[in-house]
Amino acid sequence: MTTTPEGGFQALKEEQIQQYLHDSIVVPEELQANVLVTTVDKIYNWSRKASMWPLLFGLACCAIEMIATASARFDLARFGMEVMRPSPRQSDLMFVSGTVTKKMVPAIVRIYNQMAEPRYVVSMGACATGGGPFKEGYTVVSGIDKYIPVDIYVPGCPPTPEALIYGLMKVHEKVERQSIQQVPWYRKERSEFVPIPVLGPDIFDPRQVQLIREHTLGEGAAQAATDDGGGITLKPNLLTAEQKQQLREIKARYMAAKQPA
């Protein structure tokens, strides 16, 4: 390793401060296996990536930055993304741009289901990623990834247009790593239909009905019933030592992978 970085601030930033920054991406193992560089793949991926049509779909404040990204100053047209399609059937890319509320989730999941494969989801902003500043709120979903698979998370509140474009380039990278041989959408067992969550007394996922029953009707119910505030309070489920260990390992792996060799 050289000691003196060359090439100005950016190189310096990359070489010296690398470990403090967060812009290096670990290629997940399953994707690394996919880097199959055939000509077909190249053409296939190039054409897909160069004409990705986003869904015209704004949720909250982040949508304003999304519009700013699409307009003259930052110009998504440079990436072949200027055609924002209002119809999910015609679009490949969904920006979940803003706070996802429980009332909105069923609609979003339905839209997602309507999009044709290959489809990508960008979770734009803190809210869509993890609930953001409104995470504690009673009708806010803590991250759209609870309901639909997300390809890229762009943190920031709101992400500046540049940050969003950076995220889109990461999507491009992801697209480039896919191989026509392995992509799921030409196979028999096509991608799943995500069950649409239901608005009951509170939102619930049809897949979790049994789990919820255990808690509302089972043991925990009696203790929960003591609170008359309308909602129920469950004892916070602290992380077990095992889980903590697990987290630490994930984290360590992540850090190790980030560090330049």
Binding site: Y20, H22, V26, G130, I152, P155, I250
Partner: peptide, 20 residues
């Protein structure tokens, strides 16, 4: 630094002391 987009949210978006 705004170039922070990641493919996986957890734990990559919880920055610890070393990352900060």
């Amino acid at each position: 630094d705004f170039e922070l987009a990641v493919y996986d949210r957890y734990p990559n978006l919880i920055y610890d002391k070393a990352e900060l």
